[in-house]
Nucleic acid binder design. Structure first.
Lengths: 255, 255
DNA sequence: GCGTCCGTTCGCCTCTCGCGAATAGTTAAG
DNA sequence: CTTAACTATTCGCGAGAGGCGAACGGACGC
């Protein structure tokens, strides 16, 4: 029973402050000492010495009087990605799905109870979506997320719901945990998850779970309701995306 | 006179430890408490509480008994990249250069006295190179680096050399600062920098400075000596890469 | 069973580091 | 040019944070 988080043990306050600082810099893109001090509810002196340390460590850059995230994070991010064993394989499959469907194809893995987009490719007719590589999303409201949740035990899902809740995005969002469990059951049966305008009105999505490697993952196609309906939505695309998931799983074995 | 780093002021030891921890995790991909404690020369207890904090903050993941960098860094990395104003423009130009030449094209910006690769595209005949998006390189030994250094004042270059040195990679590496200054003078005159097997034997490279936006940058083509010689190396490619740099600069103005 | 490795926890004691206040710079307005 | 209102930066103090050694508890491998 090694629970992921929530264990006891000591926490280092100074590290917490620096982490919050980096997170704030992510929101601001670039900010000065006073601005950040106000944001964190800390003294300017404290923020200043933290920034000086992060600058020394090259985790932050300083242009004039403003601080910003350093490109060091690009390097760390690449390493983190390469730690996901099926990352490269999915990287071949996602553009293929995008090309064949002409829509947006994406790949997501679970981390800390949230979904992280790791690949995104746009086909010929692809619409604009707000997700980007690295962005995080709750799992209950997307097809990708539901395809991931379907791989977990009831207790694990319960824990995730308790931590993050089931906030509503549109009138179709599932906000009731029993309804979610019921839907996940059908996902398991059909091996496909759907998003019928549960995040954004007019946007539908089909996703299949990818059960390979050490993390829960999923692959999807997204598009407008105008093209995502009838047989294409209920038969053609599910089959296509299940195949894509299968290709990833099969290739993963050989690694 | 706001010097980039090296200023006085207090440093937070706990933050330094966590930064070193993250850097160690980058090297190891994944590691346990004891391993990391040994690596940093710290007690297991200390490392443990730092990891617990970083886990809480979701900067690190724990699988079983091993810790690894979280995908959070992918998100932070994307934000850091988007902070480089010419990033997207260069992202269009690099693949074009790769396609037109059939070789490897790359884009680099300076940060903390080092060069960071931000784009890499491979043409039809592209060879394998060890660089990847996010990887860092000293500036004295690559064409990209020299194209970047050519944009700096003598004092700034002096400071960078003093900090990082001029380590040798091949018999062609410039390891003498006067020779470097002389070479940079010709780079400024011709607006192109060359790498004649100064990093890897058999690998040549042509780069042009990109002076737009808030950071020094450069764009390049790389290939084998067998194809990088004669007029192509000394005339055709320099002209092509200067044009590409120019396109980025012109497009940057419109932003 | 024992020995050895691991991760985790505990308590002590020091020196870190968060804070408020004072000091510099820097820009803007009068 | 002066004053005012911002900044970033530095200083000194004192509480409590946090680094450490040691003890503990679980997991393997003999």
């Amino acid at each position: 029973m090694d629970n992921g988080d929530a264990s006891k043990g000591r926490r280092i306050q100074a590290v917490e402050i620096s982490c919050e600082l980096l997170t704030a810099l992510e929101r601001f893109n670039s900010a000065g000492v006073s601005e950040l001090a106000a944001e964190l509810g800390r003294s300017k002196a404290t923020v200043h010495s933290h920034l000086a340390t992060l600058l020394d460590q090259e985790f932050v850059v300083k242009q004039g009087t403003e601080y910003a995230l350093s490109l060091r994070f690009v390097e760390l991010g690449e390493h983190a990605k390469s730690g996901v064993d099926i990352h490269d394989i999915a990287g071949e499959e996602v553009p293929r799905v995008a090309r064949e469907t002409g829509e947006v194809a994406q790949f997501m893995v679970e981390e800390h109870g949230k979904g992280v987009y790791l690949h995104k490719a746009r086909g010929e007719n692809a619409i604009q979506t707000s997700s980007y590589v690295g962005s995080r999303m709750q799992l209950h409201c997307t097809a990708l997320g539901k395809a991931i949740l379907s791989q977990f035990s009831r207790e694990r899902i319960r824990a995730i719901i308790d931590e993050t809740g089931l906030p509503r995005h549109t009138s179709n969002t599932i906000t009731n945990s029993e309804a979610l469990f019921a839907e996940l059951e059908t996902v398991r049966e059909r091996n496909v998850a759907f998003d019928e305008e549960e995040v954004v009105k007019g946007l539908r999505c089909v996703a299949a779970p990818v059960t390979a490697g050490d993390r829960a993952a999923a692959i999807s196609v997204s598009g407008p309701t105008s093209r995502f309906k009838g047989d294409r939505f209920h038969e053609t695309l599910p089959e296509l995306i299940r195949d894509a998931a299968n290709v990833i799983e099969v290739n993963a074995v050989q690694v």
